[in-house]
Design a protein around this nucleic acid. Structure first.
Lengths: 153, 153
DNA sequence: GTGAATAGTTCAACAGTTTAACTAATAGGA
DNA sequence: TCCTATTAGTTAAACTGTTGAACTATTCAC
């Protein structure tokens, strides 16, 4: 690729990824902030999708230290949204699950998130948005590899 | 579009946008955290690209309250990275500019950001990444309109 | 000229983050 | 078997970023 073209693509990517993130976060917050923060929503989403979720697993998935997870989980546990249960075989391990209230709250916020994403996804034709998400997923794989190289040094 | 396909696209979008954001933020932080936080880098970037930048303009661009901008600018001004100058015609207004040190710091971190983005952008062929960024920019426009509708209620 | 609007700050409170030091439990090798 | 290293998770202090309400100072508009 031509150097000039690469420079232009880099600038456009930096700008647009920043702008989209900010606006998506803003719209998301408008929808769910009465019940949960954005991070809290993603934490509940991860726990529900995972089997036998632990703090260590969350810390890896969210690329933060375990103590950051402890803080988030404490707030959610204090509100009765998340429950901790000890592993009987390895008593160091705490499994995280959603309470009944946690399931309800996650379901409620998830619906709002889906409606929001649907409202802009359906503005594209199917081929364009499918190509977009395909490339986005390729990018995710590339970043995963880069992250592993970074960590494995 | 078929309902099932839409649901699948929504799920994929929610997952991949979350994952890419987390990993990109992680890699970005590895590169620049000695000098600036990610938000601080974007603030400097915005100020440099803007003429006569003000706190109000930043608050709108970043979708946060003005008091959040005050806090960020205070920290950067305390470090001698940003300077405030009053408008002589409208003495309510404070223009924000980068100091010499601020320019150097922004240049340094910008280089690292560019190298990082270049390292994954060049893993795609030109047509694919161009299409991706084009669609990303369309999405930005759609979100801008949605945000304006939200605010204009 | 006075009341409304605008630009920006301050303060208290909170969410999320890092780092270092810590407890408790398990695993592995001499 | 015992001792050491590792692992899971917590705590505490310090920091960044955020909101919302109350505030100062200035300008605008009728």
């Amino acid at each position: 690729m031509d150097k000039k073209i690469i420079q232009e693509l880099i600038d456009r990517y930096v700008s647009v990824s920043f702008d989209v993130n900010k606006k998506a976060a803003f719209l998301l917050k408008c929808q769910i902030s009465e019940d949960l923060t954005i991070d809290q929503h993603y934490i509940l989403r991860y726990i529900q999708h995972s089997n036998n979720c632990t703090s260590t697993e969350l810390a890896e998935a969210f690329d933060v230290n375990k103590s950051a997870i402890t803080a988030i989980i404490n707030r959610l546990a204090d509100r009765g949204i998340i429950e901790r249960t000890r592993d009987e075989n390895d008593r160091r391990v705490l499994y995280l699950t959603l309470s009944e209230k946690g399931h309800e709250l996650h379901h409620k916020t998830q619906e709002k998130v889906h409606l929001l994403v649907e409202s802009f996804i359906t503005k594209f034709d199917e081929a364009e948005i499918t190509n977009f998400i395909n490339t986005y997923e390729k990018l995710d794989l590339i970043l995963t590899n880069m992250k592993n190289e970074e960590v494995g040094e």
